[in-house]
Simulated assay, not measured.
Amino acid sequence: MKRVEGKVAVVTGGAMGLGEAAAHMLAREGAKLVVTDVKGETAERVAESICAAGGEAIHLEHDVSDEAAWERVMAATLDRFGKLDVLVNNAGVGWGGAPEEETLERWRRLMSINLDGVFLGTKHAILAMKRKAEPGGSIINLSSIEGLVGDPNLGAYNASKGGVRLYTKSVALYCAKAGLGIRVNSVHPGYIWTPMVEHYLSEAGDLEEGRKALDAMHPIGHVGEPDDIAYGILYLASDEAKFVTGAELVIDGGYTAQ
């Protein structure tokens, strides 16, 4: 099936993990990809892999906290492909710690990527989508289960992902009431086995024991895989989700049902 054939998609944080999985899946289903990441060389590898498989993709080095960088990404996307249909605001960072030991510098750095990056991407995606002959599109913001429930050691991360959740709803309502034809939704993954989660567990202690503990936290019995989230992103990017906006797509193995 070509569920997003003819669409042009930008995926931030596309060099690894959830972003890489989403980029590959959207490409397999017919989309043309702009893969962006602060790690430009790794994003280039992902774009080359998509092209080697018969798809069409370019890569851009991209700091999502920098508005000028967003302007360059959108200009390059429109120059190469002529339009933007889908934005996946995936780029993010995560770390934890006791709130009284957190620094303002670290707090602001996390917010600049996880929350400011979503704001800037959404802003510039709307501007680009409004330029199409037939305005419309899909903006998909990666929040988290940590945007739905609290964690005693992830205060800054919780705050950023909760912000993404409510900002998504606000913009979804704006786009709907303004008649822009742009759908805006958030995705809330449980723990997914990605390099970021591996790094978090390694810093916390024994990786194997950490994996077992994470598996046990999910009623389904294990953590998720990147494609579990990519399938949800694909659905929201496709016309199958034409009646879905302002929604929270929770993909968490039952974590938040407890």
Rank of each mutant, 00 (worst) to 15 (best):
E105T: 11
R106W: 01
R106K: 15
W107V: 13
R108D: 15
R108W: 12
R109E: 10
M111C: 10
I113A: 04
I113P: 03
I113E: 09
I113T: 10
N114H: 03
L115R: 03
G117K: 08
F119V: 14
F119N: 01
F119D: 05
L120P: 08
T122V: 11
T122W: 08
H124T: 11
H124D: 07
I126K: 04
I126M: 14
L127F: 09
A128D: 06
K130F: 01
K130Y: 10
R131C: 07
R131Q: 15
K132C: 04
K132S: 10
K132E: 13
A133W: 01
E134M: 10
E134H: 04
P135G: 12
G136M: 09
G136W: 12
G137A: 09
I140F: 06
I140H: 05
I140K: 07
I140A: 08
N141Y: 04
N141T: 03
N141H: 12
L142I: 15
S144G: 01
S144W: 02
I145M: 14
I145V: 15
I145F: 01
G147H: 09
G147T: 08
L148D: 00
V149W: 03
V149C: 01
G150T: 14
G150I: 06
G150S: 12
D151P: 02
N153V: 09
L154G: 05
G155D: 01
A156R: 00
K161N: 03
K161E: 01
G163D: 12
G163P: 12
V164Y: 07
V164G: 03
R165F: 04
L166Q: 10
Y167D: 00
Y167A: 14
S170Q: 14
S170C: 14
S170G: 12
V171K: 06
A172D: 08
L173C: 11
C175M: 12
A176F: 04
A176K: 13
A178Y: 00
G179D: 05
G179Q: 13
L180F: 12
L180H: 03
L180M: 15
L180R: 01
I182G: 03
R183A: 07
R183K: 13
N185V: 05
